[in-house]
Computed example of a mutant assay.
Amino acid sequence: MILFHLFDGKVQRYSDLERLIPGISQKMLAQQLRALEADGIVLRTVYQQVPPKVEYRLSAWGQALCPALDALLLWQEQKPAAGEPSA
């Protein structure tokens, strides 16, 4: 979900991601963002101001995932409704 909200060069603040992903706890969001940052998929920018401002965006490596994630979205949209036979 985090990656989808950072598609197309979008920059999101932590609080924006928290609001955009219903039901995610602060702990889980922080853990996932740290893992994505450690993997080089997400870039974190900290602005030294009061209150602190932190923004997240996809790295070039993360942007390379976009075609694969687009394919997953297309695949999900083709899912048959419950009770329908699959093709």
Rank of each mutant, 00 (worst) to 15 (best):
K53R: 14
E18G: 09
Y47W: 06
A68F: 14
Y14N: 05
S59R: 00
R44Q: 09
Q78N: 06
V11P: 05
D8Y: 14
L65H: 01
Q48E: 10
S59L: 00
W75V: 08
R13P: 02
P80H: 15
L69P: 07
L74Y: 07
R34Y: 03
F7W: 07
A87D: 15
R44V: 07
Q49D: 04
G83L: 15
G40F: 09
L6P: 09
A64Y: 09
M28I: 00
E55S: 12
M28Q: 00
L29C: 05
A82P: 07
S86H: 07
I2F: 00
L73V: 05
L58R: 07
Q12I: 06
D70V: 10
S25V: 02
V46D: 12
D16F: 07
A82R: 14
A81P: 08
A87G: 15
L36I: 03
Q32H: 04
K79F: 13
R19N: 05
A71Q: 14
I41F: 02
K53M: 10
I2L: 01
P51T: 04
L20C: 06
Y14C: 04
V11W: 09
A64N: 12
K10L: 13
W61E: 12
G23Q: 00
V54S: 02
A82S: 13
E18L: 13
Q63S: 11
A71V: 08
L20K: 04
P85G: 10
V42W: 04
A30P: 06
S25L: 06
A87I: 10
L43N: 13
D39Q: 10
S25P: 09
K10M: 11
K53I: 10
S25C: 08
M28P: 00
M1W: 03
D70T: 11
I21Y: 01
S25T: 13
L43H: 12
Y14Q: 05
G9A: 05
S25N: 07
P80Y: 15
K10G: 08
S15D: 14
D16W: 04
P85D: 15
A71S: 12
L33A: 03
A35K: 04
L43Q: 15
P52C: 07
Q78T: 06
Y14D: 03
T45H: 11
S25Y: 05
G62D: 04
Q26R: 05
G40K: 08
A35M: 04
M1R: 03
W75K: 11
P85V: 14
S59K: 00
D8K: 13
W75N: 10
I24S: 00
